[in-house]
């Protein structure tokens, strides 16, 4: 089967029942396509059919997962697809950032893993914002931020995911938004919300540090990051409880 997401085409080669079981790993908004062009090929096979459903996944000729139970294979495939999109998308620049929509603008929360993005996104959504992404911000060449709406996944320090408390939003679509606010924050217990305004160049650096294809396409990335940074105010602060920070953030726009 061929899927297309953010301009990247994948070919998933798997038995029908295996493909069905792996479907939750497919990127949100991926659509089936019949286009014949170049595609990233992932093949999934049952490693030892006589020993249960252990799966082996290849990307091209490279083995990316061997003898994995379904849940593991699904995780690895989801990550591999997400990463391939983020690196290869021809018309979108992928930032590692949470995104919500508020008053017709996108609030962009760049940050590495364990900075508390997903928790904050969840709190913002609970406070009335529209969910766009807890992980990836695809920015179009026009500077608009698109949604990457996988179910919110809250990861603990142990690396595991907590169950999402919001319904999976995969089916709903939302329109791309201009950036209205950039918030650089990370969780620290009992930290007070004390935002400091960043210069546009500081904001661009924060975004650059979370730009996934920056090494592959730095010229295009710099141009787009400049546009984002000049187009919206940016603030940096540690935060304590996500609910309190969310309230303050929504007041800023």
């Amino acid at each position: 089967m061929r899927l297309r997401s953010f301009g990247v085409t994948f070919e998933i080669v798997a038995a029908r029942d295996v493909a069905g079981a792996l479907a939750p790993a497919f990127p949100p908004h991926a659509t089936r396509t019949a286009c014949e062009g170049r595609a990233l090929r992932f093949s999934v096979g049952l490693a030892h059919p006589d020993r249960g459903r252990l799966m082996t996944i290849h990307r091209g000729r490279r083995t990316i997962c061997r003898d994995a139970p379904l849940v593991v294979a699904r995780d690895i495939l989801e990550h591999a697809l997400r990463r391939a999109i983020a690196v290869s998308s021809p018309h979108h620049l992928f930032l590692h950032a949470g995104v919500v929509g508020w008053k017709g603008r996108a609030i962009l929360i760049p940050g590495h893993s364990f900075s508390g993005k997903s928790t904050l996104v969840q709190a913002l959504v609970a406070a009335g914002a529209t969910y766009y992404s807890d992980e990836l911000a695809p920015v179009g060449d026009d500077g608009l931020v698109h949604a990457y709406r996988r179910p919110i996944a809250l990861r603990t320090h142990g690396g595991a995911f907590a169950s999402p408390s919001l319904p999976a939003p995969r089916a709903r679509s939302v329109k791309p938004l201009p950036v209205g606010l950039i918030v650089c924050t990370r969780y620290r217990e009992n930290a007070a919300w004390a935002p400091q305004e960043l210069s546009a160049a500081e904001a661009a650096m924060e975004l650059l540090a979370n730009t996934i294809p920056i090494r592959a396409r730095p010229r295009r990335a710099l141009r787009l990051l400049k546009r984002l940074a000049l187009g919206a105010p940016a603030h940096r602060s540690e935060r304590g409880e996500a609910r309190d920070a969310a309230r303050e953030i929504l007041r800023m726009i």
């Binding site: 939750p24 790993a25 849940v71 593991v72 699904r74 995780d75 989801e78 996988r150 179910p151 919110i152 996944a153 990861r155 603990t156 320090h157 142990g158 690396g159 595991a160 995911f161 907590a162 169950s163 999402p164 999976a168």
Partner: peptide, 29 residues
């Protein structure tokens, strides 16, 4: 990433969750 603070995830792990990272299991990245 392997940290004792992750143990609360074990309790969540037995919930038949629908998240992309974990479905009724225990995962450490």
């Amino acid at each position: 990433t392997i940290d004792l603070r992750g143990k609360e995830a074990f309790v969540l792990g037995v919930t038949p969750a629908t998240g992309p990272g974990l479905v009724g299991g225990i995962t450490a990245f």
